[in-house]
């Protein structure tokens, strides 16, 4: 054993007395000092990751408690965010409503379309085109959210006005599709924008799952004379159901936490609009980004802590959604590699 170590982090392995090897043999673990140190480092990194997660939860909770004890309103029901003054009064209701509603709108729009695209890539597109399209969709997942925000504010918003008037004409009687004012920078616009943003995520996960459907199932269905749609309905969709659910939840998680695109497009106000098309409302992440500069200016206020408290709510929300998605994936072991 005359191996010279090259890694600076690991000391040279000592000449092993045979006894140590025997000891190690009984447990099956590493016995050489090099091995032991390497294992310690890699296990340490794993533990460090867990520590970071725990630290996030702890630090946010500590700061949030500080803000909540000074809050003069009710954190759950106050429709206001005035945390910077001497009498802080703030509540999360409006922000939570905006976050959940815009994310749900995004899901409702994006998931069916994403399943369609995933099916298009896996089952409909001409072969040479399919991999190129899949590749393009993956590239689009890398477009930064602020660029979506810029595009949303300067291109999408002006083009939605006509559509909203149309909605108002035909669906205005429902109340939620009423449209009253001039700039459509509303929660519904955010929903559309978020849908476009999470589309690549949901598509690529569903596509992976659709490609894993056993060929035998599909060929058996085809041999029985099924049309392509019947093949999809009978073999592809049942096999991919849990994959689709977890893909949607991963998309939901991304939509809930999206910050800059919302901060750029939404015109905010602290009340809950009965109509989805009218400007107003806000989301948790957007409120943190937009309200941050103001909150730091005032000495001794709990402004930043109040924002951290709302961040904690967002953290817990995404933790639940992502945890649930991952558990659904984990139940089907073969999907574990579906998403990076």
């Amino acid at each position: 054993m005359d191996i010279k170590p090259t890694s600076p982090t690991s000391p040279p392995p000592q000449d092993q007395p045979p006894l140590a090897v025997d000891k190690a043999g009984s447990t099956g673990t590493a016995a050489r000092p090099g091995d032991r140190i390497f294992l310690a480092f890699s296990r340490g990194s794993g533990i460090a990751l867990l520590v970071v997660m725990a630290a996030i939860a702890i630090f946010l909770t500590v700061r949030a408690t500080r803000a909540l004890t000074k809050n003069e309103g009710s954190f759950l029901t106050t429709f206001e965010w005035a945390a910077n003054g001497a009498h802080p009064n703030f509540g999360i209701a409006v922000l939570l409503y905006g976050t959940v509603v815009s994310a749900v709108i995004a899901m409702v729009i994006a998931v069916p379309v994403a399943i369609g695209i995933a099916l298009f890539i896996s089952h409909y597109a001409p072969r040479p085109l399919a991999s190129t399209i899949g590749y393009l969709i993956d590239l689009l997942a890398a477009v930064p959210s602020i660029v979506y925000g810029l595009w949303g504010a300067l291109f999408l918003v002006p083009h939605l006005e006509g559509l909203y008037k149309w909605f108002d004409d035909y669906l205005g009687w429902t109340g939620i599709f009423e449209y009253n004012d001039g700039t459509p920078r509303s929660l519904f616009t955010i929903g559309i924008l978020l849908a476009i943003m999470i589309l690549p995520t949901v598509t690529s996960v569903s596509r992976e799952v659709f490609l894993q459907v056993p060929k035998m199932h599909e060929e058996a269905a085809l041999a029985l004379g099924a049309t392509r749609w019947e093949v999809i309905r009978m073999s592809v969709l049942p096999f991919g159901r849990s994959g689709i659910i977890s893909a949607s939840m991963l998309g939901l998680g991304r939509a809930l936490g999206e910050t800059m695109a919302v901060a750029t497009v939404l015109s905010t106000s602290f009340d809950i609009q009965p109509s989805l098309l009218d400007s107003g409302g806000g989301t948790i992440a957007q409120n943190i980004a937009s309200g941050f500069k103001e909150a730091t200016d005032v000495e001794g206020s709990v402004g930043r802590d109040a924002l951290i408290a709302s961040g904690l709510v967002l953290f817990v929300l995404t933790l639940i959604v992502n945890g649930a998605a991952r558990m659904i994936i984990a139940r089907r072991k073969e999907y574990s590699g579906a998403n990076a």
Binding site: G46, L50, I56, L60, G253, G311, L314, L319
Partner: peptide, 28 residues
């Protein structure tokens, strides 16, 4: 157990909103 826990939390961690990571460093 440790490896399973780490795997699960790595997965969950991919979904942390970027603003929350920012808030954590801010408070720390």
């Amino acid at each position: 157990k440790l490896a399973k826990t780490v795997t699960f939390f790595v997965d969950v961690m991919t979904g942390i909103p970027s603003i929350v990571a920012g808030l954590f460093i801010l408070s720390l």
